[in-house]
Each structure stands twice: as structure tokens, then as C-alpha cells.
Simulated scan of single mutants.
Amino acid sequence: MVKILAITNQKGGVGKTTTSINLAASLAALKKRVLLIDLDPQGNATMGSGIDKLSLSATIYHVLLGSRPLQEVLVRAETGKYDLLPSNRDLAGAEIELVDLPQRDTRLKDVLRDVSEEYEYILLDCPPALNLLTLNGLCAAGGVMIPVQCEYYALEGLSDLLNTIRKVRSGLNPLLEMDGVLRTMYDPRNTLAQQVSDQLQQHFGEKLYQTIIPRNVRLAEAPSYGAPALHYDRTSKGAQAYLALARELLKSQGNLRKPKREKVI
């Protein structure tokens, strides 16, 4: 059965798109059939997957508005070995145009029914805002992954996101669950990062992923080459951390045993 995972945080700069791209590539490397959906008008997940967003004749914008079927818009991210539903600035207009359309909150959920059996994982890279695009992601997903940077304002805004998740679950998508909180850009030499990590552990407990994503130069460099870190530098700590996260997801679904302790890679 397909696992649809919304990767979201209304706070920008927390590694949301980096996580979407590298988790998709890592799951694909573990022989899983993966679809990555770029729900952000900035199109960073599209460019980071090696697809030129400016050259696209159709994007998820056209799919959400019903002018093009999803199958015609899908592209192959060759470096990451996953399928991609791309995005560009056209998607910014969808916010306004979706308002007057029927089932505006569940249009993504409706179109994914046609391809859900073709994939084992569908990852949704949501924009850094609690808007109609993010709401479509939450309505379509079964789980939510929240990347959180280990910094002073880490918990800021999380309560609003958690409230939104609860509201969506009570009204539009009763199957929605918080899959977990992911610590990103972690530097073990930084005392503040350690303190924030401890706070997240106390606050979220078992809902905190055991794998921790380190601050890593290769992760930052890879998008400019249009490739996931796994294919830019497989031996880097960042690439290995996302492979560990992918394995943790598989373990959480019962395919493998859970790791016994935190992995700081």
C-alpha cells in the first residue's frame, strides 16, 4: 500500500526541500517506487531534481486546475531514479484560481487516486506556509514529516502547524497522522543545537525520528548540480544520513527492525 507523506513546515530554511529530494532518492536507492510532488511555486524540488522549471510546458498547476491529466505532466528525475510532478511560478496563481473551484481542498487527493497503485512512496514537498497548497497536501497525505532546524526558534510556529493537522484530521482527512519530527542541519559541536535537540526529544518523544540530519556542505552543494546528495557524493555524511532516514521509514512500517539508538551521521 502506498505511503503518502507530506513534508512541511511553515518556517522556511529548515531543510524541507533538501529532505524531499534526498529522501526520494534514498528510497529509490532502496528499490522503492517513488513519486516526488513539488507543491512549492518556487520549484526548488524540481530544479534540485535536475529538471529545468523554466522549460516546462505543463506542471502540477495544470493538474490541480484539471486542464492536464497527471500522467501527461510526470517527468523522470534520472539522477534520483524517481518520478517527479514538477512545479514553477505558474503554481502561485493556483492559490487564487482554486478558491472558486469545487473540492478545492482535495483536488490533489483526487488526482493521486489514479496513480497510487504505481508507487510505494509519494512525497509531497509543501510550500513554507499554511496555505491552500499545503492544505491540499495534508488532505492527500497519510502522514506528515516536519523538518526542524536545531536552532533557537525551532519550536516557533510548530503549534500552528500541529493545530492545522488536527483540524484537517477532524474534518477533511481522518487518516492523517503526524509521522514524525526530523532534526536537520545539526551540528553536534554546537551547545545550542544539543539543547534544542533535547527539547524536541522531551516534547515529541516517539514522534521524533531517531535519524538526525547533520549540517553538511555536500547537501548544500548538490542542488546546484541538479542532483540529490546521494548521487553527487554518496559517501558524504548528508547522503548517508538520508539513507538512514529512508531505512528508518521502512522499519517503522515493519519491513525492518527499528534502530536501537539515535544515529548522528
Rank of each mutant, 00 (worst) to 15 (best):
C139L: 00
M145R: 00
L158D: 11
A129G: 14
L155S: 06
S170C: 00
L230I: 12
A193R: 00
P174W: 08
Q149T: 01
H203E: 14
R234P: 08
H203F: 11
G171F: 07
I146L: 01
T164D: 11
G137F: 05
E120K: 03
C126P: 06
A229H: 05
L192G: 02
L219M: 11
V168D: 06
A222M: 02
Y121S: 05
L182E: 10
A140M: 02
L208I: 08
S170H: 04
Y232A: 11
M145V: 15
Y186P: 08
L158N: 12
P188M: 08
D198W: 11
V217N: 11
R218P: 00
H203D: 09
M145T: 07
Y232V: 09
L176A: 15
G157M: 00
Y186S: 08
I146P: 01
H231G: 03
A129E: 12
L135K: 08
V196G: 02
N216K: 10
V148F: 03
A227P: 00
L176C: 14
P127F: 06
S159Y: 09
S170K: 12
G142V: 01
S197W: 04
Y152G: 02
L175K: 15
P214I: 11
V181P: 03
L172E: 12
G143C: 01
D160V: 09
P128N: 10
R166P: 01
A141H: 03
P223C: 09
D125L: 03
H231Q: 14
T184S: 13
L135H: 13
L130M: 13
P147N: 04
Y232C: 11
N131I: 05
E221M: 01
E206S: 13
Y232S: 10
T191V: 14
L158M: 12
T211I: 07
Q201H: 11
M145P: 00
V144H: 00
P188S: 15
R169H: 11
L208H: 06
H231W: 09
A222K: 00
Y119L: 04
L158H: 13
V168C: 07
D187C: 07
V217A: 14
T164W: 05
G142F: 00
R218T: 07
A154P: 05
N216V: 10
Y209N: 03
T134Q: 06
H231V: 15
P127E: 06
N216T: 11
L158I: 15
L124M: 02
T211W: 02
Q210S: 13
G180H: 02
L132V: 15
V217K: 09
T235R: 15
P174M: 10
C139M: 03
Q210V: 04
L155D: 03
E120N: 04
I213V: 15
L132M: 15
I212S: 04
A222I: 00
N190P: 00
A227T: 15
D125Y: 02
L155P: 04
R215N: 01
P214V: 13
I165G: 12
P174V: 10
L200D: 01
R218A: 06
I212R: 05
D125I: 08
